[in-house]
Structures are given as structure tokens and as C-alpha cells.
Design a protein around this nucleic acid. Structure first.
Lengths: 207, 207, 207, 207
DNA sequence: GATGAATGAGATTTCATTCAT
DNA sequence: AATGAATGAAATCTCATTCAT
């Protein structure tokens, strides 16, 4: 309830001020991670008083959680959108489109992406113990649905161990997006995606 | 040369003291990562004077690099050993054994493993810009050799795109070991490994 | 701009607190010079928290520069005042008055004087490479004007090498003031000044 | 007696080692002054054990005093030599030669010169309270003799106030040498010396 | 005589948070 | 609601000196 009130307080600010604060916070957390991020730098770069920031967000931790929530909302939106858009595609085409949409998302939201990747790979944030499983469950559930669709349409092997298949796709997808993020999209994404999906489809064994 | 002298200085210490310092440092870096790791805590937990630690390692950064080097040596040893031991095995058997050996390594060296995983996934360490590619090259080269062996023996598809295959195996392997590390080996590793390799072998498509 | 803000921050303090901080800083820098001066001692002697001092002045260096600026302003004021007051005097009378006014200045501002002398003679301060020439130019320009006045009024030798004359007067003046400062004004300033000026006037040669 | 023993201990070292230590010490004190000079850097740069340096010189302070004594001996030698060499010259010629010899000394011994100038102008060394008057007395006595010679030969005004004349010459001489030292001898020393001496000789007044 | 490991005080600076105005 | 002064703990690192070997 208190928290609610605080956010109300933040939400009542002028959009311009809200944006300055969000920009500064996203920048800070994406560049430094949670622990090293500095509230001092946030207020300096947002051009507000130090006390004000603590009026809107009681603690550094709660500011972070707010920012993290934003990043998560964005990711969820993207996942939902791309799922809907590819409803009619066959499984492997759909997978390709999902991966390429991820690359595009990273290009459009580099700093939010960085926060998202940090959450996936570090443990220095508040609630990180709860966040990581939450994220894994999110992408796991998502891929499970896609795979189930593929099975239902007779595009995937009926005897597939779904849990392991999800694991493989999730691992490769995340790593691919991370590399794409780190390399600042200089790789040929389309070619990579096609090659990876071909291997998923056919396996590696000699035929 | 100066560096050499410093390490000499550390190496001249009694093995007991060396171990106390290494234990404390590994613990600190594995629990907190580079930036948050505290030299104060290291000296407290090693039971030495603050000045002494800085006599052995000029800076926090150089202590970290030393510890990182240790972790890397251990990983390299393990990789070499398991490759030699599995020379005669067919590709997918070999892959299974490598993965299971990784799980065993993590059980035996939980803190070094954590440092290794940190290096793979964070960017807050000195030289991390150089370290990550170095590690990727290490595991990439390793897997390339294993795959090439498999192709030479007609166990793998001759038309495989090796680079992408390495990418897939590396992603899944790392993620699997990371999960195994995080879950403290409570999962059924053998079952997982078999299932994952079966999918690698056969692919996901309906037949 | 940031600097501006910081000074604002300091200027907003109560005059009493400002003075305690200035007193403590001037004392510290005048007694120890820049490098040995200790921010710890400053906060202790000013009776403020360590963090506070760094709120007002980001760094030791910027505190020093502020204090140095104060000293410089005081010196410039004194120079301007005494020049105006002695407009009508003949050259050597004027010179005497300037020197005696310097002695008085030192008596009134012993610690600022010490900082000023430190800047003239040491190289351990930030920007000291730029400061020394700045100070030399200040006193050089000043003396040049005085001398030029003397020449215009036919009180000084028309063939004087002005640059060298400035050099001589500057050297002796500074040394005289420094000695006066070190001896805590126990010498007979008036007598010294008269004697020195007589030699300047007549030279040393046998006539 | 203890001190004596220590120096004996230092003097018994091989000339090579002595020189390495002296070089390192002179470098350190000339670059940093007494307080900032670091015994650690001295041993590093001399390539000896830390304990050894403290065997030869009990304390940082006594090392400094030894080095300072060296610088002083060098200066005294130079003063004696140039005085003897110019016995036959008339006063103002002699003065010119003394000044130019000073410039040459600085060129030959830049680091000892720096230590000497530091002693003249800073107060951060042990015994600096006693050292400064000692140095002033040294150069004062020296100039007094030279001036007295000039008076005896009827080259200088018999009514000169010797004390003040010494003061003027000492001030200008020191400042001139300091500037020469700082400018790394890029000024035209001969021209400066002649001009300065001409003014000393004739005075500044309109004739 | 030579060595260098050991020490702990002290240096500057950053930090999240509080609270009176 | 907004402000920014105040705080002291904690960070990394340097230092001259001692002393057992």
C-alpha cells in the first residue's frame, strides 16, 4: 500500500520529469548493474534533487525493481506480439521469426536488453533469487506453447521430450540474442538463424 | 618482472597461509563478483594484515587475475583429461561423458566453477573484454575438435555447418552446467544428458 | 557548471560553518602544503562530517584551488589598492610604500600569505605548472607599470632594461616579504626598505 | 656514534651499490620532496632489499640528511672553486662569472640543484628550521666576502650598507638560478647576467 | 650483513539514506 | 512536494619501520 502510494507519487510527475528519471535509471543500471549503480549519479543525470528520488522510490532496491518491471513488461509484450503474428507459420519458420524479432528488439531497446541479460546472468540484484526462476519460467512456458503447437500440427516428433527440447531452444536462443547484443548486431542474423534451425530440425547424425 | 617478483613473494609464503588467502579470495570473488568483492573481507577472513595482502598482490585487480588464472587452469586440465579419456568413444557417447564430467567437476570445485561462470556472464571484471572471447575460443576450439572427430568417423552429418553446431553445443553445455551448478546437482544429470544428446542426434522434426 | 553548483552548495552554508571550514582548510594547507595536507584533519578541526566536506568540494584538489583563489584575490586587492593610493608619489617613495604595505598585508593575513608563498616556491600543488607563471605574470605586470610610470616622469633612467629591472625588483620584493613573513615581522621594516631602495636608486659602484 | 657506525656500514658497500642507492635517493627526494618521497620506491629503484636500506640509514629522515649533506658539499665546492678562480677579477666581472658558473652547475647537477632549491623554499623536511638559516648564512657570508673585496679595491661605494647589498644580490642570484633551473637553461644566460649587473652597478635613477 | 614478510594507521573518496526546511 | 545538507561506514591503497631468519 505504501509502495502503491509511492508509485502514485512518481506517476503524478510531469511526463518529462518521469522520463528523465527513467532514462537516468535505466542508463545507470544497465551500465553498472545493481550494486555498482549509484543513486547519486542517477539524480545528477536526471537533474533532480536527491531527496526527491527517495520520495518517489523509497530505496535503491525499489527503484531497481521498478525498472526491472519495465524491462520485463517490454519483453513480455514482444513475446506476445511475435507469437500472435506467427500463428499461421509452421514451427521452424515460426522459430526463425521469433529469433529475428528478438534481434530487432535488442536493436530497438539496447539498454532494457542489457538489464534483462543482467538479470539472467548475475546474482547481485535484490530478489535475484526469485527473478531468475521467474524469467526461466516465462521463456520456458512460452517455448512450451510453441513446441506443443508444432507437435499438434505434426511438424515435430511426437516422442520429443518437451522439457529437454525447451531447454535446448532456450539455451541457444538466449545465447544467440546475448551474442547479438554484445556484437551490436554486426553478425548476419538471418543466415545464423537459418543455419541453427536447420540443425534443430534435422539433428546432427550421419544419415 | 615486477609481477613475477610479486608472485614470488606470494609463493614464498607458507602453504598454510597461501591456502588461507586463496580460500578467502576465491570465496570472496565467487560470492560477490569482482566489483563488490572486498579486500577488507579477504584479509579479515584470511586472518592477515591489510598491508600484507597488498604486498603479495599490488591491487585488487591483480589478485583477481591471479585467482581467475587458477580457475582457468583447472578448467583446461579437466577439458584435456576428459578428451583423452574418451578418445575411443563414438561422438554422442563422448559428448555424454564430457557433460557428465563437467557436472562432476562442478561438484568438486564449486567455487572455482562459480568464478568461471561469472567470467562467462558478467562484464564487471578487469580485462573482461579480453577474457570472454578467450573463454569462448577455448570451448569453441575444444568442441570443434570433438565434432571434427565425429565427422571423420562418419558419425556426424558431413554437411553440418560446424560453426553453428559448435554454437549449439556450447550454448546447451554451458547452460546445462550452469543449471547443474545452481541447483547444486540435485537434478538427474544422467537422464538429462541422455535426453539432450538424443535430440542433438535425431533433431526435432516429425519423421 | 557542476563546479558552480558545488560552490553554491558551499556558499549556502551558514557563515559560521563556512568560516570554520575555511579556517581549517587555510590552516591545513598553509602548514603542510598541498600533498601533506589531510582532509581528515580538516574535517576534524572544522568539526564536520567527512562526507560533508566532499559534498562541498568534490576533491582535495578542488578545495585547494578554492583556497588558492581566495589567497590570490586578497593579494590582487592589496596590489590594486596600494597602487591607487600611491599614484602621486615619486617612484622610489612609491616603491617604499608598496613594500611596507606588503609587510602590513602579511601581518594581517599570515596564513593566506603562507599559501601565496607556497605557490611561489613549491611544485606539489595541482595546476602548479600553470599557477607559478600566472603569479609571476601578475607581479611582473604590476611592477612593469610602476616602472613605466617612473620612466615617464623622468625619475628612472631612460635606458633601463625594463625586463631586467622588473626581475630585480620582483626578486628582492618577494624575498623581503618572505623573510618578513618568516621572521614574523620582528625586523625593522622601514629601515630595511629605505636602505634597499637607496641601493636600487644609486647602484653599488664607487663614484 | 651510532650514526657514525651506520654510515660506515653504508660506506663499506661496493661503490656500485652505493651509487645505485644514492641515485635512487636523489631522484626520489628531488622529484617528490621529503614528505612524499617513498622509501619503498627508493628500494625498488635501487634494487636492494627494504631491510638493507634501513640498515644503512636508520630512518627516512637520516637518509634525507645524508643526501642533503651531499648536495651542500657540492654547492660549497662550487662556491669555493669559483671564488678562487676569480680572485683577480674586478667586482662586477667576478659577479658575472659567479652567476654563470651557477648556471653551469645547475646544468651539470640538475637533481642536486633541485634538492638545494627545495631546501631553500620549503619547510617540509626534517631540520628545515635549522637548514634554511644555515644556507642563508652560507651564501650571505660568501657574498659578504666578495663585496668586501670590492670595497677594499675601491670598486664599490664605500658607504654601501653591506647587509642590504648582500640581501639584494642573494635574492636576485637565487631567483635567477631558480628560473634558470626551471626553464632548463633555455634563456640566454650571458645576456641576462650582463644586464642585471649593469643595473646593480649604475642603479636605476635618472641621471 | 642481507633479506623481505608483517604490520596497522592513515590517506582520499563514494555511498544510500534521513530529515529539517 | 521538493529540496539538498548531513552523515559515518566502507572502499582501495600506501607508508615507514621492525625483526626473525
Amino acid at each position: 500500500m505504501k509502495e502503491q502510494q509511492l508509485l502514485k507519487s512518481f506517476n503524478r510527475l510531469s511526463p518529462d520529469k518521469q522520463n528523465r528519471i527513467l532514462d537516468a535509471s535505466i542508463k545507470e543500471f544497465s551500465e553498472h548493474g545493481y550494486q555498482i549503480a549509484s543513486m547519486n549519479r542517477v539524480v545528477d543525470s536526471a537533474g533532480i534533487a536527491k531527496g526527491s528520488l527517495f520520495n518517489y522510490f523509497n530505496t535503491k532496491s525499489s527503484l531497481f525493481i521498478y525498472i526491472y518491471g519495465l524491462a520485463l513488461e517490454n519483453v513480455k509484450d514482444y513475446l506476445r506480439t511475435v507469437k500472435d503474428k506467427t500463428k499461421e507459420d509452421s514451427f521452424f519458420i515460426r522459430l526463425e521469426k521469433i529469433m529475428l524479432a528478438g534481434v530487432a528488439f535488442i536493436q530497438d531497446h539496447p539498454r532494457l536488453s542489457r538489464i534483462y541479460f543482467r538479470m539472467l546472468y548475475t546474482t547481485d540484484s535484490p530478489h535475484s533469487k526469485e527473478i531468475l526462476p521467474e524469467l526461466r519460467k516465462l521463456s520456458g512456458g512460452y517455448l512450451t506453447e510453441i513446441i506443443q503447437d508444432g507437435i499438434n500440427r505434426n511438424e515435430l516428433d511426437k516422442n520429443l521430450d518437451i522439457e529437454k527440447t525447451v531447454f535446448i531452444l532456450d539455451s541457444v536462443l538466449n545465447r544467440f540474442l546475448k551474442v547479438s547484443h554484445e556484437s551490436q548486431n554486426t553478425i548476419n542474423a538471418k543466415h545464423w538463424v537459418e543455419s541453427l534451425c536447420r540443425i534443430f530440425k534435422n539433428g546432427m547424425a550421419y544419415k
